[in-house]
């Protein structure tokens, strides 16, 4: 069942996230709007994962406010995430998807057809009965993607889903992301691969040391970066 009001836009108002003495996000204000994919870029440790997990609702801000469609504390019924290292439930591939369907209260009679459809979408139709933890890294990423989509989200967060995958597996994931975006699902994805960012981005959010250094449409970001950090990063130099 769809909630009557959308979770979008997601608005960060001066959000700080700290873990002990370490500040992961430092006073971020940001709005994620419906539309084409938003890609988070920035060096390792810049806060991409924390921003995704905060937007998903897995992490609570230490200070500041996050709102979904103007409301606070909205349970993640219309949001889904593929974590950087997705945990595979100790079940078969189809069992993992069935679990997500059940958690979203999908009727039992519809579950099997949805499972077949989702496994076919990510190209795992042949491996439905294989224990999920015996799948390869790329297969696990695709299964995690299918499992996230099983929740029929309006927004899908992806945390470096192609890191450490070979080019063929990367293309498979990117194709699915592209197709999902075409269906009107908002994609928010972190990557440190600039090529991937160029291929998928509608908007870019660049992070550095837990702060947003630059945001904007992908085309202008790549052609005319405004900040020194963005220029350095795009030039392929180390940003410290």
């Amino acid at each position: 069942m769809r909630a009557p009001i959308s979770d979008l836009p997601i608005r960060f108002e001066n959000v700080t996230v700290a873990a002990g003495a370490v500040t992961l996000l430092d006073g971020i204000s940001l709005t994620l709007n419906p539309g084409r994919p938003t890609i988070l870029i920035g060096p390792n440790g810049s806060g991409k994962s924390t921003l995704l997990r905060t937007a998903m609702g897995l992490v609570r801000p230490s200070q500041g406010l996050v709102t979904w469609g103007g409301r606070e504390d909205v349970p993640p019924t219309r949001r889904a995430i593929v974590l950087q290292r997705p945990a595979m439930l100790r079940r078969s591939a189809s069992g993992n998807i069935r679990y997500a369907l059940r958690a979203s209260d999908v009727a039992r009679t519809e579950q099997q057809s949805r499972i077949d459809e989702l496994l076919a979408l990510v190209g795992l139709g042949q491996l439905a009965d294989r224990p999920a933890r015996r799948l390869s890294g790329g297969e696990q990423q695709r299964l995690a993607l299918a499992r996230a989509l099983a929740r029929d989200p309006a927004i899908l967060f992806l945390d470096e889903p192609t890191a450490s995958l070979d080019p063929a597996a990367t293309k498979a994931i990117e194709d699915i992301v592209h197709a999902v975006s075409q269906r009107g699902i908002k994609i928010v994805m972190a990557t440190h691969d600039l090529g991937e960012a160029r291929r998928l981005a509608g908007d870019i959010v660049m992070l550095h040391r837990g702060r947003v250094v630059e945001t904007g449409p992908a085309a202008s970001f790549f052609s005319t970066p405004q900040t020194g950090e963005a220029k350095t990063f795009l030039a392929g130099e180390l940003l410290v």
Partner: peptide, 26 residues
């Protein structure tokens, strides 16, 4: 291992316990 995934799937406390016991059954 499961915490983030189960929270992301909005699984409640009872469902969590049941899932963890079932998946840890071996």
């Amino acid at each position: 291992e499961y915490r983030d995934e189960l929270n992301a799937m909005n699984v409640g406390p009872v469902g969590r316990v049941a899932t963890l016991i079932w998946d840890a059954r071996f």
